[in-house]
Structures are given as C-alpha cells and as structure tokens.
Design a protein around this nucleic acid. Structure first.
Length: 878
RNA sequence: GCGGACGUGGCGGAAUGGUAGACGCAAGGGACUUAAAAUCCCUAGAAGCGAAAGCUUCGUCCCGGUUCGAGUCCGGGCGUCCGCACCA
C-alpha cells in the first residue's frame, strides 16, 4: 500500500499529484478496451492546436471533460476519453518564417511540452490512442477519403476569391488582412480568383438543416446559429428583359433571385455583382466600369468587410425592363455589395423595404416607392426616408397586388410569373436557396495534408493511385522566399501521370485544417488501424460521441463541417451514421483583468502586485514598484499579456486547485474570470477538505450499520445523501459550478457536525461520519482526483477512488417529514406555514387560512382565491 | 452590416413562472498568537421604524405588457461580448 500523508501536515499537492499520476499510469486504469462489454460512453474535448503551451482555456475545457469521464466511469460505463493534436496549421509556418525552425520540429516539440502539461493536470485520458493530424499515418487516411469523396461526387473544383498579397506572393487569411493590407508586407491586398477544390457540403444543406432538430442535447443557440448559417430561403428567380437599345444583342436578359417578389412594383434599380458576366461584358467596353470593378477587388473577402464597406455602384447605362410594364425601365448598376456566390449574383432593388437598397438608392438619388403600408397608416401620407419598412402590412402602389398581404402578394406574383413564358421558359421560377456555400478546402500552404491529385497535360486531373498513399510532405523545404514552399520545391511536384505515364505535376495545395478535425473523433476509436480510416465494427460501436465539449467559437464551422464529413464518410462506407455528436456543450472563455504601465505597455499579471480591496484596488509593478493601471477584463490573449500560465498555477497550488477553481463560480457555458483571490480560495478549501477528512479518519466506527440513528447522526446522513443527489444531478447536466457549491455546503455541514462532537462520538454518529466521509471523497473525486486519492487512502481504503463506483443516494433521506411553505398574500410573502410533506391541498389551505396574518389581511371576508402549488408556495388572493 | 448570446449585492454567481441573493470571493468585527500567517466564530442588498425580538418600503439594465405571482414569459430600448466561411 502507498504511504499517505500524515494529517498533522498540510496537504502537499506537489508530492501527492505526481505520485497518483504515476500509479494511475502504471495500473493503466484509463486505458480503454474496444472489447469491454459494459455500456459505452464517449466523452471528447476539442483537441488542441499545439501552439506551444497549454492555456487556461484548455485547463477549463479538459477539466470539464475529465469530470464527465471520471463520473461516467464510476457509473460503470466503458469510457472512451482520448486526446490528440490538431497539428497542421499556419502558426507552424509562421514560426518557420520568423524563427527559422522547421514546422515539423516546432510542432512535435510543442506536442511534447503540452503533453507533459496535460499529464500534470491528472486527466483520465487514454494516451495509447493519441493521434497527431500531421502524422502521415493519420493523413494517409484523409487522402484516401478525399479520393473516395471524389468518386462519390462529393468533391468539385470551383473558382474562389482569396486575399492575395502581391509582395509576399501568398494568400492571406482574413485575420492576416489589416485595413486592407497584408500583415507582414503591408502591401495592399487584392482579391484574386483561384481554382480550388471544394467539398459539396451544399448538397447536404437541406439534410444538415432538418437534422438539427434531432440534436436534442445541443445548445439551442448553436442550433439556431447553424440554421441561420445554412440560411434556407424560399424565393423566386425572375428573368428581366434588357432594353436592346442599351446593350448588345448578346446579353438580352438578366436573371435575379429575390425573396421579396411582393415588392416588385417598388423596384427602382437593378444591381449586379462586379463578377457578374454582364458586368464583365460591359466593362470590356467601358474603361471606367473596368476601373470601378478593379476598385471593388481591393475590398477584403471577409463578409463583415463587405457588409460594412460603403455601398458603391456604377451605372452601366444598361436598362432592364419591368416584367409587368414594358415602358418601365430600371437602371442596371454594378454594386460592391452584391455577391456572385449567392443567388444569381443579381438583384432588383426595392429601396422602401430593404436597408441596403435604401442606402444605395439614397446615395444615387434613385428615389423610393413604398409598396407595403403599415397597419393603421394612411397610404397617401406614408413616406420612407432613411429607414425602410420591413414589417407586415397591406400592399399599395402595386396594381393587381394592392390590398393583399405581402405573403399573398408573393404567392400571386410567383403564380403570374411562372405562367408567363418567354422563349419557351417561364419568366419566374420558384427556387429554394441556401446561404451555405460549398466548402473550399484548398490552401496554398506547406503545413497541411497534401491533396492527392496529379495534374497531367493530357489526362487532366488524376487521383493519386491508392497504393501510392500517403502523399507525404517533403521535409527539405525552405521558408526564406515568398510563396508556397511545395510549389517551388525542386523535385517534389514532378511525378509521372498514373494513367499515361507522361510527365505530370502534383497538386501543391494542401487541405484546410478543418478537414483534419472533421473526423479525428472517428479515428480515435481505432487509431492503430493501418488499412483503412476506420473499422466499421469499432467505429459504429463508439460513435456518436456522447458528450463533446469545446469552445463556442466552433459553433458553426468546425461543427457543421464535421456533421457534413460524417455524412460523406457514411456515404463512402467509413461510418454507419450521420450525426457525430449526440451531446454538445460549449464552454465559455477564461478572461482576466488587463494591466498597463505608465508608458501604456501591457504587463503580465505575474508581474503585478494588487493591494487594497473594494473600489480602492491599487496595482504596482512587482519589481520596479511603478504604478500600474488596472484595465478592463478581457479574453486572455498574448497580445494583451493578460495570461496566466497553467504551469505556474500548478507549480504553486497544484492541479486540483486549478481544476477546482476552473469549475467553481461561473456557469460553465459563460466566461470565467481568473483571479488570484479565487485561486487562493480554492487552495484554502483543498486544505480544509484535507483537515475534515483527517478528523473523520480518526473516528472509530462500528463495522455494521447501526439499526437506529440519533437526530444528530440523521442530520449528517441527510446532508451527505442530499449532496450526493445534488452533485450527481448537476454533473449529469454539466452544471459544475453548482456541483462545487454543493460540495462546499456538504463540507460545511460536516465541519459543523464534527465541531460539535466530543472526542469519541457514539457509534451511530461515528458510523454516519465515516459514511459521509466516504461519500464526500467520492463526490469531489471527478473534480479533484489527486486529493481524492490521498483522502481515500487516508480513510483506510485499499482501492483507488478512481476505480470506485459512484455511491447511491438513499431516497428516504432526501425527503423531509415536514416542509415549510412560504405564504403570500396578493403575491407578497407574509408568512410561513409548516405542514407534513405529503399534505394535500385542502389541508394546506386550511392551515394557511388559520394563520393570524392571513385572517387579519382577509378581515373576516373569504379569499377570492387560494393558490396552492404543492411543495412550493401558497398565495392567498384577498 | 448580418447572425447569436448575455445584463441580479462591492465581485463571480444561485433561483422547474412560486420566499431574490444558495455557494464562493472580497470586506468589517471578534477569538487564538508576543506578533504575523494559518485557522475558527460573527456581520453583511438599500432605505426607514424599533430599546430589542423584529417590522415596513424599495430592489434582478431601462420602459411597457401578460399573470394570483415575473430575475424568469412577451414587445420596445440601452449596454457588453462572441461568430461571419483561409485563425484554430
């Protein structure tokens, strides 16, 4: 048996934590067998990018997952709780450029460091399943699936806009474009069209949308965000004739998509995307238009930039003819806010009922005609100036639509336009549109999974034969020149065409790292398998993930891509289901105060000393003594230096304290403020628990359960079993902050009981105290596993608490004999009434009416109404 | 700009439409100590009344609504935060 610490000393996390971690590892208790017959439970936290060191966000995320894993294990389930590395990505290449280190070396060094950090947290992870997405043994299978998807028609090539840095000769991520300039070069960024590989996620738009409703253990907000992202809209395609006098015969019509065809009589202009073929054709004959389009290309590709940029247009001189009036001509503008990717890249503008159209019309003095009149408003006096009318109403100024609701008007308009034909085709056609675009996966970068394609002059685009997988990244690359190192590698891209044997070149683009993270959860089920990405028997047993936990910043992209990828894997036979994550939890961020010195430089919390409380907090620099300004609380970030290094915390307080603090106070889905005081509070509590358990360890109790318990012993038992019931329920609901509160409550109650006990408590109380001690330790074990092991051993147990089963609450102890109900008179609390816990409504009512306060308030009259809510409250309406 | 959330004491927060402020932090008072740390006990939303036990009024960002009853539901504001397709 292991030596445990004597109770006259403080609990020493520094010696206890490594000791228990070693024992857990030696006994392999967190290694999961795929053959274990017990019911499965798959708990997964979003795997980290190996950026260098773990941060507090990781500590929070992985602690939550670990609580669930340890709890479910105690509940008798076969728990899969793996960990890996989202190891491809740009920071490795940035390090290569800035520090002359190889991305691979940099990444694996980081993994080694972070793995040690995670190990020191005492997480119950199965490290035998560790994977790194940058390992050829992982990405080989990803390449195989790319080829399978290609065969299954799930992959296509499309032109896509990217931010191009003309100096660095590279594509920039949106975050690398700052005020329209490249972050490294400072050069003005231009939009460029690149031929890209895309996954056809839009084929699944309807399915992904509908299936959201089956995800009953996902947060509503995430589901709503995904629905809006997919953005289904039912609208109408309308073909407008172009006035031949204003255009060449070649372009004789313009097709637009609209969801507001009810407002067609409010149209004032047409707007097309700068990338629209008509705009391109017109620009060929109009140098000014060409210049305008070039100007539009200087805008970034980020949606927020497009939406917030000033609305600009260029009148092409082309006129479109209103479908219901041959004499009604609408000017056709090229406008910077029209996207080619959405609908047909062309719209009609109705300024009175759309903000963007109104801004545009006001700028170019195109006027507006309201066609929907608000209820109760006189149409004759209804005018629109700066704010469009977007609500429901009655149609006006709209000929045959007048008087209808907008909804009926849309229906009527669609019907009429569908019936009208021009050139054997209807003028209008109903269409369901999605905002969701196909997923562009091509990246012009080195540190990613190579796309297994060979380009041959003769045979065009050829998949790499499966026997040649993986296509491995060459290691001899340089980062001293602009552009993609793969592209300028002297030999790597030169290959023979697999079909004709002639000279060909490899695809030098690599995959978006979201691809890597779209199936890692499946790979964890059998990471050793070499012949295929998954073993169907194994993967179908483990999936879906029962509880997935990660940051809300992944609410849309990562989760939606994973849902699509799982469907694609299903279609190609790699898994047997569509939805990868049955339960999802999105945790909040870790935030911290910011500090600046007098020169305005950010200062690390570790360098700041805080004194004085309550409004009078003053901060000084720990070494120089210079005054420090305390700033706002913000997300921990390197740039603002408001970070706390988990290593420092674990070194000075221990992993359990860090874990406990991360779980306490804030609800897990909200931000938590890291504060020194809070950590110290957690640290004090660890010592208090240690002392409490020490007291109980000294209590000599009979082996057999006493037949009777005194009131005092009963009180202890009730506190224990109530805490047990509460903590269990709150872990199930992932309400860890309440678990923490209940452990505090229980521990306080236990301390009270011990404090009022003489040296040797009577046998029944002694037994109750020992029972409570055993429950207490098992209750906090998922949150503070090292302390729990130390306490468990101290209580004389030979087993590991990590392998113990979860205690069962005795329901009889949860029910009080009498309950005290608040009594309200007219909704205000005026008294209490104590009744038997199972008292009926009538009994409660008569007890309440007998109260002096109630009698006085009623003043002899009978109450209008008495509302009795069982177990809750009584309200007397006088 | 679009989409999503959040707003409760000095602070983090608790509260199936049912006693607002559990639990913790910080604070104040006391005990122990030569002293400090640690620990333990007590107090604590605001205002007012009372010698006291206690009582009254107000109070969950603001305005309005639904309800016997609203922190919670609905409508409208204000503020803060997150995401927006090549950051992960």
């Amino acid at each position: 048996m292991t030596e445990h610490q004597p109770f006259n000393e403080r609990y020493n996390a520094r010696t206890a934590e490594p000791k228990w971690q070693k024992i857990w590892a030696e006994r392999g208790i967190f290694t999961t067998s795929n053959a274990d017959p017990r019911p499965k439970y798959y708990v997964l936290e979003m795997f980290p990018y190996p950026s260098g060191r773990i941060h507090m966000g990781h500590v929070r995320n992985y602690t939550m997952g670990d609580v669930v894993a340890r709890y479910k294990r105690a509940m008798g389930m076969n728990v899969l709780h793996p960990m890996g590395w989202d190891a491809f990505g740009m920071p490795a290449e940035n390090a290569a450029i800035e520090r002359k280190v190889h991305p691979k070396g940099w990444t694996y060094d980081n993994i080694a460091t972070m793995k040690n950090q995670l190990k020191s947290m005492g997480l119950s992870l199965d490290w035998t399943r560790e994977i790194a997405t940058c390992d050829p043994s992982y990405y080989k299978h990803q390449q195989k699936m790319f080829l399978d998807f290609l065969k299954a028609g799930l992959v296509a090539r499309e032109y896509r806009k990217v931010n191009w840095d003309p100096v660095d000769q590279t594509v920039l991520a949106n975050e690398q474009v700052i005020d329209g300039r490249g972050w490294r070069s400072g050069a003005e960024v231009v939009q460029r069209d690149l031929h890209q590989w895309v996954f056809k996620i839009s084929d699944y738009a309807q399915d992904l949308l509908e299936a959201i409703d089956t995800l009953d253990r996902w947060p509503e907000k995430v589901k709503l965000m995904q629905k809006n992202w997919i953005g289904r809209s039912e609208g109408l395609l309308v073909r407008f004739m172009l006035d031949p006098a204003t255009t060449l015969n070649k372009e004789n019509e313009l097709e637009i998509f609209t969801t507001r065809h009810d407002t067609l009589f409010g149209a004032k202009f047409m707007a097309i995307s700068p990338d629209h073929p008509l705009a391109q054709a017109a620009a060929a004959k109009d140098a000014k238009l060409a210049a305008f389009i070039a100007e539009c290309k200087k805008m970034g590709t980020a949606q927020a930039d497009i939406d917030t940029a000033e609305k600009m247009g260029y009148d092409t001189g082309i006129k479109a003819i209103h479908p219901f009036d041959a004499n009604w001509k609408l000017p056709v503008y090229v406008a910077n806010f029209i996207l080619m990717d959405y609908g047909t890249g062309a719209i009609f503008g109705c300024p009175a009922h759309d903000q963007r159209d109104l801004d545009f019309a006001n700028k170019y003095m195109l006027g507006n005609t309201p066609v929907v009149c608000p209820p109760g408003q006189d149409p004759a006096t209804f005018v629109i100036t700066d704010v469009p009318y977007l609500e429901d109403g009655k149609m006006i100024n709209s000929r045959f639509l007048d008087g209808m609701t907008p909804e009926a008007a849309r229906e009527e308009m669609a019907k009429r336009l569908e019936q009208e034909t021009r050139g054997n085709r209807p003028v209008g056609k109903r269409q369901v549109n999605y905002r969701l675009r196909d997923w562009g996966i091509s990246r012009q970068r080195y540190w990613g999974c190579p796309i297994p394609i060979i380009h041959c002059e003769k045979c065009r685009v050829m998949p790499v034969p499966e026997k040649d997988l993986p296509v491995e990244l060459p290691e001899d690359v340089t980062f001293d020149k602009p552009g993609n190192p793969l592209d300028r590698h002297p030999t790597w891209k030169n290959v023979k065409c697999p079909q004709c044997g002639g000279a060909a070149r490899r695809e030098t683009d690599t995959m978006d790292t979201f691809v890597d993270s779209s199936w890692y959860f499946a790979r964890f089920t059998d990471p050793w398998r070499t012949q295929s990405p998954t073993d169907r028997k194994v993967v179908d047993h483990w999936l879906p993930v029962d509880q997935y936990i990660g940051g809300v910043e992944h609410a849309i992209l990562h989760l939606l891509y994973s849902r699509f990828f799982t469907r694609a894997m299903h279609k190609t036979g790699h898994v047997g289901l569509d939805e990868p994550f049955a339960g999802l939890f999105t945790q909040g961020m870790v935030v911290h105060e910011t500090y600046r010195d007098q020169a305005g430089n950010w200062v690390l919390p570790a360098e700041v000393k805080i004194e004085g409380g309550e409004g009078a907090r003053k901060a000084t620099h720990i070494t120089t003594g210079a005054p420090i300004e305390i700033g706002s609380i913000e997300k921990m970030s390197k740039s603002k230096k408001n970070t706390v290094d988990p290593d420092d915390i674990m070194e000075s307080y221990g992993a359990d304290v860090a874990r406990w603090f991360m779980l306490s106070d804030s609800p897990p889905d909200r931000d938590v403020i890291w504060s020194e005081e809070g950590v110290q509070g957690a640290s004090r509590f660890v010592q208090r628990l240690w002392r409490t358990v020490g007291e109980i360890a000294h209590v000599k109790a009979p082996a057999a359960r006493p037949a009777q318990f005194s009131a005092e012993a009963e009180k202890v038992r009730k506190a224990a079993h109530r805490a047990l019931s509460n903590v269990s329920g709150d872990i199930e609901k992932l309400r860890f902050n309440r678990c923490v509160a209940h452990v505090y409550e229980f521990s306080n109650a236990l301390n009270d009981a011990i404090g009022s006990t003489e040296q040797a408590p009577p046998p029944d109380l002694a037994w109750a105290l020992r029972e409570a001690g055993d429950i207490l330790v098992r209750l906090f074990h998922p949150m503070m596993p090292h302390l729990a092991e130390e306490c468990w051993a101290a209580l004389g147990h030979k087993s590991l608490v990590a392998s113990e089963s979860w205690p069962q609450a005795e329901t009889a102890l949860l029910q009080e004999q009498t309950i005290t109900l608040p009594v309200q008179i007219n909704g205000k609390k005026r008294a209490d009434v104590t009744v038997a816990h199972d008292a009926g409504k009538e009994a409660i009512e008569s007890a309440v009416l007998a109260l002096d306060v109630v009698k006085k308030a009623l003043d002899g009259k009978s109450p209008k109404k008495v509302i009795v809510v069982p177990q809750r409250i009584v309200n007397v309406v006088a």
